[in-house]
Amino acid sequence: MTAARVRAAFADAGVTGTLHAVDLDHPDRELSVGADDPVVLASVFKIPLLVALHHSDHDLTRRTTLDLDRSTGPTGIGGMLDPVTISLRDLAYLAVTVSDNAAADALVDLIGLDAVNDTLDRLRLERTRIVHRARDFMRTMAEDAAPDAPPSALTDPVVLSRLRALDPDQTNRGTARDLTTLLRHVWQHDDCAPIRRAMALQVWPHRLASGFPFDDVRVAGKTGTLPTVRNEIGVVEYPDGGRYAVAVFTRSASTAFTVPRADAVVGTAARLAVEHLRLSGRPPRTR
């Protein structure tokens, strides 16, 4: 019933999508909409990266310098003009709060993709694999779009149909269920407290958070975006103590960069799912 409503909401927004939602304190209460289908993670990969970092032996207060050969992006250090010296934990903060590609790739270069996948193995998240840094999927997009050039080429459906970065088999991938399992780990483990803080400080209001326009409800999330791909995973916390992990992965029909409805339906779908979990947890009404 709720799954059908989620699918209808996706269709109405011109997207297809998968979703998994689970009650953090009652993991038997869950909702799945294609939760085991492989999906492209895009920047959601920064959460498995940070989990691996926080379980490593690195001193996160150590400072490192990102020179001008670092990865680029529209936000954070990725968009800055000068060398930056910064602690590892502040890199982690930027990688989540503003999806900073330079910060995330610097952390991958430090711990290595193998360490990230080893962490996923230990958590038994075998359907989630990290094979690319942010700069790698930027590079494959430019290669696959050639001879057309980004950004305009990345709104051409013919170009998009040949991008490896949009094929779960050829880039960072996971499933909605794997990612809520990862969030449960982040919300249970003391080492991961800084990740919870950073996700709660994420700046984007347009996806998961848009579904919960309630001042007394807290939303912590991490988005992932590529052409036609709009994802977010996060945890929604109600003042009555209810805590729900939600992972939403969508692909839009429209190839435009700016599609507000497609962003908003990530929040709408999450709210439908969370309402379902909250109702299923309530004792049956007595006369």
Partner: peptide
Amino acid sequence: HAEGTLPRYPRPAAEYLS
């Protein structure tokens, strides 16, 4: 046949293009 596309300016929320 479809011709060249319009100029496109992705916003920061696009996350991957600068």
